[in-house]
Design a protein around this nucleic acid. Structure first.
Lengths: 220, 220
DNA sequence: TAGATTGTTAATCGATTAACAATC
DNA sequence: TAGATTGTTAATCGATTAACAATC
């Protein structure tokens, strides 16, 4: 099975793409501090990538800097917004309205950034009919119908592992562009759907590995 | 600033380390299906890495296979458990008991895997004194004292961005081994503390990039 | 034994870093 | 102009893949 979250249609490597949000964040912080000009060398000190890498990364998308001057923070920030696609809105639904699903629903920064939550789906009958900030909880049985009638940019899957593939199978695939998968499993989707995984347990296990690394060394 | 989550004391590359949890998960699934033997070629078809890569990865830690036979699933699973450090327990606290903190607290699989949650800390006075599954909510002001008196393997930071560094600064650094950071910011820690970041917004922005990639291509 | 599959070395591929001419 | 810093090419480094001898 291909890891779809690492599929990349253009010639930009995923290594570069995954650094873009970090540029975005640091540039935003610079703007908040009213710093309007920065060189790759200064940015390097802040962000921890080499100056050379920063210039290489940015030049994948265009020559945003100026020799002898550096980069205009505001301009570069706007460019990266465009590259990341943060200058548009995304219609989103959340399937699985437990703590994790609700955490995503309540993360208001996402809403501010243009991610419009249309509905939360769950199997729990006590939730169905209720609302979070005017967003209705719906029965997961309505998921097929809902995706027949609405184009969805991002389906968040925050159900337990064993339901994840079943949820995918219920979706009208023609009306779904991407899946943000929090279930600790790999899901199978048609080629045109983009999957981005957040595997929390993999992250925790990696941390555990690193906590024991010294010890592993001694054992050798 | 150095990205500490990619620091690696031994000679094993982080690329390999981050694949280990996936091996762990697929081997667990094989055991559940009562499959007790597998070749790198078969595993490759399941997991999506090349057979060559699988053999290379595993050989970083030892020769767990047998020529002409393949790998004993149970044995390999146990080895990877040991390598990841999942054969011990970890004392954990959660700082920031919003939806995300509670999602981590309620993810019972972590408890089953040996992650012992000692307490949740928050500033919300309505929470303090309450309990989740016998685990007390405490006032974040007690965090310094608590880490003076208890050795903590993993501090989960699930506060809003602006509080994250302040939380780190309150910790007794000698008694904390690692930080699992969900706050959308990079934190500064002493060298001996391992940080693993889960930056949800970076993941969402990467997904957004990929959703627009075709369009970016057309624009060129 | 013959077939299968590992462990491991060598080759390739891709990503990062270094260097420097171009130019503001 | 002189100094600074980019954009970009070339060199290096590291990770992945291929190949195959070893061996179960």
């Amino acid at each position: 099975m291909i890891n779809l979250s690492n599929r990349n249609i253009s010639n930009i490597s995923m290594a570069v793409v995954r650094r873009l949000p970090k540029y975005h964040r640091y540039l935003q912080e610079l703007l908040e501090k009213e710093i309007y000009r920065i060189s790759s060398k200064e940015l390097s000190k802040l962000i921890g990538f080499t100056a050379s890498q920063i210039r290489q990364d940015l030049n994948c998308f265009g020559g945003f800097g100026q020799q002898g001057y550096g980069y205009n923070v505001e301009e570069l920030y706007q460019e990266i917004e465009k590259i990341l696609g943060l200058n548009r809105t995304y219609k989103m639904i959340i399937v699985g309205a437990g703590n994790l699903g609700q955490a995503v629903a309540n993360y208001t920064n996402f809403e501010k950034s243009g991610y419009e939550l249309l509905a939360l789906f769950d199997i729990n009958p006590r939730l169905i009919g209720m609302k979070i900030r005017d967003i209705p909880f719906r029965d997961v049985d309505e998921l097929g119908e809902f995706t027949n009638e609405n184009e969805i940019d991002i389906v968040v899957i925050s159900t337990p592992r064993e339901f994840a593939q079943g949820i995918v199978d219920k979706l009208n695939k023609d009306n779904v562009k991407g899946i943000w998968n929090f279930a600790p499993t790999d899901i199978k989707v048609p080629e045109h759907i983009i999957v981005e995984n957040v595997h929390l347990s993999e992250s925790l296990y990696t941390l555990s590995y690193l906590l024991n690394e010294k010890h592993l060394e001694v054992d050798k």
